[in-house]
Design a protein around this nucleic acid. Sequence first.
DNA 1: GGGCCCTCGTCCTTA
DNA 2: ACGAGGGCCC
Length: 642
Amino acid sequence: MTHKNLKLLNPSQREAVTCKDVPLLIVAGAGSGKTRVLTHRIAYLVESGVKPYNILALTFTNKAAGEMRSRVVSLVPGISYTSFWLGTFHGICLRILKAESKLLGSFKNFIIYDGTDQIALIKECVKNLNLDEKKYKAGIVCEKISRAKDDCIDPEEYLDMADNFYQQIVAKIYKKYQERLREIGALDFGDLITYAISLFKKHPDVLEKYRNKFQHVLVDEYQDTNHAQYIFLKLLTAGKKNITVVGDPDQSIFGWRGANISNIMNFEKDFPNVKTIKLEENYRSTQAILSSANNIIKNNRERKEKALWTKNTQGDMPIYCNNEDDIEEAESVAGQIEEFLSQGGTHKDIAVFYRIHSLSRVIEDALRRRNIPYVIVGGVRFYDRKEVKDILAYLRVISNPNDVISLKRIINLPARGIGDVSLKKIEDYLDSRDISLFDALSELNNINISIKTKEKISAFVSFIRKHQCFDGSLAKMLKKLIKDLDYFNYLKRQDLPGTEERIENVKELISAIAEYEENSEFPSLAEFLEQVALISDIDNWDNKSNAVTLMTLHSAKGLEFPVCFIIGMEEDILPHKKLSTGESDIEEERRLCYVGMTRAQERLYCSSAKRRRIYGRWQDMETSRFVGEMGVELLAHCEISG
DNA sequence: GGGCCCTCGTCCTTA
DNA sequence: ACGAGGGCCC
């Protein structure tokens, strides 16, 4: 019941939940019950008569969406699990694009290209335009194109804005890249948002439909939205009073990915008659932890002033430990974890955060030596593992033979005698014709390659066609594919380190597709591939498993743990090196540190090393400026001996 | 065309 | 330290 639910909220939270008919900005400090407010607000809306299907809620990760969904369902008895639109920006935009796909011309089955695919395709474009690959590095160009998309800049606009030769060339690559994506029928992450925007702009009737549908739009983590997402929201809500955004400028940590902190800073100017509510009571951390976190963040200039406080107990002072080297640091962390466990603590209560993935290795070694179970979030994502990507590439080609990037990945894997030379000949032939690579593989008459090779290519084409025709469950199809490829023996023949693990990963992929099939109403290979592309590192993390969690500070956003470690508190690591040039970047690094500290409920350990192995070489490190900013009087130092 | 060896850049964070 | 990619030989 509404009344009962509202009683569990503090006055500001209650106001944020019940406030009506104004654009609403909720500035929610770390641990102030942001998710609680959002879920209660959705529940409150439904209970006051809003139909669930008239609600759109946007989150940052699938995990956050899933948690929010189940919390709303438990708050509103009888609400259907799927009746309201709740998901990530990318997921929701894909859903809209699929619903309106008849307006999108060539797109039928969507393929979503991830970072690796993007770089491979850009590399192809650079080659195709006869540009110097050393000068126009695919990774860097990809970065530029992705940022342009985040800012809603298309290739023509990019060219107009280019003020040097390099940028003009990037504009040319960008244009080519978009053409190629379209031919393939693929979208990259940025396209999901920008295509939804141009769909709305080109078809006002469609926009109107969604504007009417979404009577209430709620956005989580608003501080991390980019310009394109802002435009998307503006289109859906302009002139209406139905938008609620929740965020904390102090936790804006995705500037490098195109997030625009001014979205939240300027929200009050952007939307007329905004109501702003600050949530400043922290329910998560002890006073000692909160004080040192506040001490750090107050050094930032670009922020919305707020005073985070707590009724929680004072608690233990955060501990800072400076170690001789990274190995000693890892030993010290593992030792303190062991100590905590021996006092009756549980593994899942502990997290270790770091600025960069590479710091996890020494910690892993130390934990393994002590037989302390741990899980790593991210690093090499499951779906980024070579063996998993290989099999996924097969599935993608089976689903859409126009996917050249995947096709080229697998055409000679396992080796079947179709090498670079033949492929080059076919591609040259393609240049003058308007057909896809896969089509060309099916009709080789006019291409000058040996009969033997042609036979091998035909065999490959029939192999793909055969699996396209498979009827039966997806899991069965995948099992047959792996068997027909003799993929496990291929892995064994390769004899690379970790063969057993690779085989396990492929088996895991079979489980994943089987699980998808069980949970989906109308399972299809194309939809499975879409879902896989939008899975994030954190989505796969099981917070109930009995293990210590290791993750980056970025992944830690939105989570909480009784005991937290932040390692590698050194200049050039936190704050990270390339970012130490400009003051505003330092501010983002400081926010990152703040995010890490405010994850801790009871105990916070920070540490650094005087020496660290980087690129296999020892390097002297200097303690991070952030340690000093925490306030010495708020910090317990621990001196380590052997 | 396949496989071996050497060189080079990289290890910043991600939907 | 280590994997990706180029050069070279079979």
